[in-house]
Amino acid sequence: MSIQTHANGAATETSPLLDVRRLTVHLNVRGREVKAADGVDLHVSAGECVGLVGESGSGKTMVARSVVGLLPTVKLKRYDGDILLDGTNILGLRTKELRRARRGRVSMIFQEPTSYLNPTMRVGRQIAEALPKGAMRGNPTETIQGLLAQAGLPRGQGIERRYPHQLSGGMKQRAMIALALASDPKLLIADEPTTALDVTVQAQVLQTLRHLHEERGMAILLITHDFGVIAEMCERVYVMYAGEIVESADAVTLFEHPRHPYTRLLLDSLPGRRREREGQALKGSIPDLSMLGKGCRFMSRCPFARDACREDQPMRVRPNGQAVRCVLEDPDQSPSLNGLSVAEPGRHS
């Protein structure tokens, strides 16, 4: 279900809808400069559902916010790199130009819809505000109800006349989705969209997102810490650690043959997987981003750390498209992955 090729998805393989190149975000945190994202390369093709997974502090939200121009202005020091949205570089655009560049191309939904919906305005009016000017002619109520229905809030319940506080958590997130759909975006950025919801409601909301993805051919960039959500939704996955992308692959490959030690250990620490094989728990925690030096950022927690890890590692792309930022992928470093509980070394050159 989740992995499907779309007619419009295959055609635009050459130029991705979203192309993030060498994105680096420098933040000012308590007087110290911190690179919340460091040299992030990421792309999303039209009609594709891509996951960006990482623990808290990995910088995944910073990447998402950069794409829609929602970086925290107070903390932001500077940024480098390019973000091409449908061919236009949007990084550094002024508000007005940015709005024009975003409209009809990208929308975003968040973890807590409560803080992003206006509490003093009825849901319908908030959606009307986001509709393109042309859509307001004719029968806007019909359009609004249609959008709510697409987001899984059926007509005839008068949802559009309610205020956000009159909706349950799941309904609020659906109202948020309707709001995001108002500009008919090609790309939806969903930052932890179901983290605050109960499991049953989470499954319902994800199903709605998947329908939107499949039926409208809308691309999704899904940011989450939950591998279950990734497995359910995504075709391709990026794994982030301490501001860097450390591994990317299609979903099946990533879950079945993870190569970066971080990905492997993280997957092994999932309770469901630990029962099957006695995985070792991932020790320690993410390093302080303001104290980073050269070299692999996972080194201090990695059971395979060696001297060569003190050098910065490039992303090494394997024949199957899997890209890994680890010295073990270097053909010169004799690869010994023994001892890792995922017993699949794969075909190694």
Binding site: S2, I3, A203, Q207, G228, I230, V252, L267
Partner: peptide, 23 residues
Amino acid sequence: ASVLRADPRAAQERERALIAGEV
């Protein structure tokens, strides 16, 4: 049935039996 497993293959093969509504 609502639990999401970290297994993309299983997710592809299965239609979920979802319950309607919220608590």
